[in-house]
Amino acid sequence: MRNLFSIGRHPVWLTVPSLLLLLVALGYPLAQVVLRSFTDPAIGLDNYVWFFSRPVNLTVFWRTFEVAGWVTILCLVLGYPYAWMMTAVGPRMRLLLILCVLVPFWVSGVVRTLAWVILLQDSGVINRGLVALGFEKVRLIRTPLGVIIGMTQVLLPFMIMPLYAVMRSIDLRLVQAARSLGARPTLAFVQIYLPLSLPGVFGGAIIVFILGLGFYITPALLGGPRATMLSTLAQQQVLQQLNWGRGGAMGVILLVSTLVLLAVAARFTRRRYQITGGSK
């Protein structure tokens, strides 16, 4: 028992079980991916040369960024007014708005994608509605547009929650002060409210973009050959072609893109805080 008590005096020991688990289930597997991308089937950069020399791969690579980018922009456009509304209504209404964000957040992504497959299929509700209104059918399923629609809905809660967390702490008297000094509503918003809400915008955008880059289920089920994204391509290389080297190289490229993005974002937000003098 004495040993058990002395653990408390060296707090680092408390983190050892978690760190060990991460080493076994995260560190070792990641090392395998990197190793195989350089050694399977032969030692060298063959897999990376292959990836960047095939136009098909580059198309998928850019499409992944394009789709993640569009999803981020759409989430921001839909989420910003929504998050603001959550701060501006009474407690009952707020509870309802929170429920509408939390329910999709907790319902499994597979189930929500299933709903989109049903809605977007060629003979689905949306297309029959369009035909009834006299428009032509639109191909939605197995296109990048369909993937963007589905992903935006699945990822929207990840944008709204950080936005709401930041907006909730904005002191509205600052906006009132600007108004009383003669600023028009638009100017007061652009000069006061928007800059104060930017940390939430950056936080939400980074989370959505990074999750979007690595998204698997929605693109795999809603997309087809014309809407393949990097994750699906890497999965196919490993499970269908049994080509560990090429699949690993794609994984490493995806991972490095994510890390570069995070590093840039961290730098960017830090500089912003320096300019504003760390706000509080």
Binding site: V33, I210, S231, A234, G251, L254, L255
Partner: peptide, 11 residues
């Protein structure tokens, strides 16, 4: 932050 598919391949 590690993309799911990268983890899945390694695991």
């Amino acid at each position: 932050i590690v993309p799911g598919v990268v983890l899945a391949i390694g695991i």
